[in-house]
Design a protein around this nucleic acid. Structure first.
Length: 271
DNA sequence: ACTTCGACCTGTTGGC
DNA sequence: TGCCAACAGGTCGAAG
């Protein structure tokens, strides 16, 4: 479900309620997420002050003096802020209870998400250390993409969705950014010019920044921490629009499987 | 070092 | 209306 804009929207929504607050309890109803939730989450978090909330790619970090909780929403995860006493529903696997009476509630029907614990600097964690640059920083640009793509044989959509290349670009925004840049998703990544990568890097930044400004994309079930949807769906130009007319040329938007993921594009505007 | 593919889950949708 | 296959916003880790 969530890509970078949805995770960022979630972070901004929950932060004012819990930043700087003391964790009073952790309730784990089902520890069987992608990896089992370690016992240290329940053992170490209570009594700790939440010093900082951070996002890295699609991961969220809950930083305390003792260590850092690493949270990923997977395909179907979401976080809500509830008041103490709110009844948990079917897939509400974890509550982090705060002394101010708020509960951070982690729901994840498919359980592809995770909640892990580390006491080392979080950037040294195995899942984090190999990650590519954040797309909204200066370290991510066309020169970087061009250099990184040298000699590569995969298609450009798979290339920009590779978290070791750049983090946070998922299936929606990969299609959208490639449309904005006029590049066919199936084009071989190692055979694209530096100039086109400069355009693409700018389009990735632009589409992600605009999606964040709109509170993310609600396709089916993504909601913000307060239950409100994101409004970027109305700005999508190709994703989930197979057969509808291209906003530029009016030809039908095409859909095909690429790397086992649905991919949307305009065969007239993209080459 | 890079690429492809299977795996992990539940819920919803669309075709017959 | 009902059933069942196909699909869904992610990404790790194994195998080639």
């Amino acid at each position: 479900m969530p890509e970078l804009p949805e995770v960022e929207t979630t972070l901004r929504g929950i932060e004012p309620h819990i930043d700087g607050q003391i964790i009073s309890d952790v309730i784990i109803r089902n520890k069987n997420l992608r990896w089992p939730i370690p016992a240290a989450i329940k053992k170490q978090l209570p009594g700790q002050k939440l010093l900082q909330l951070q996002r890295r790619g699609k991961y969220l970090f809950l930083i305390t003096a003792k260590g850092t909780a690493i949270l990923h929403l997977g395909m179907s995860g979401s976080l809500r802020i509830n008041d103490a006493g709110t009844v948990a529903e079917k897939h509400d696997h974890v509550d982090i209870v705060f002394a101010n009476g708020k509960i951070l509630r982690f729901r994840d029907p498919r359980r592809f998400g995770c909640l892990l614990w580390t006491e080392k600097p979080v950037e040294q964690h195995k899942l984090i250390s190999g990650m590519g640059p954040e797309p909204l920083t200066d370290a991510f640009n066309g020169d970087y993409l061009y250099a990184k793509s040298s000699g590569r044989k995969n298609n450009v959509k798979g290339f920009i969705m590779d978290g070791k290349v750049v983090t946070g670009v998922g299936n929606i925004y990969a299609s959208e950014a490639l449309f904005a840049a006029g590049i066919l998703p199936g084009r071989q990544s190692g055979r694209i010019s530096k100039q086109r990568y400069q355009l693409l890097a700018g389009c990735i930044k632009d589409v992600l920044a605009r999606a964040i400004a709109q509170g993310g994309t609600t396709l089916k079930d993504f909601t913000r921490e307060d239950g409100q949807p994101g409004y970027f769906k109305q700005s999508l130009k190709v994703y989930d629009r197979a057969g509808e007319s291209c906003v530029n040329c009016r030809q039908a938007i095409k859909q095909k499987q690429l790397n086992q993921r649905s991919t949307y594009y305009c065969s007239h505007c993209q080459h």
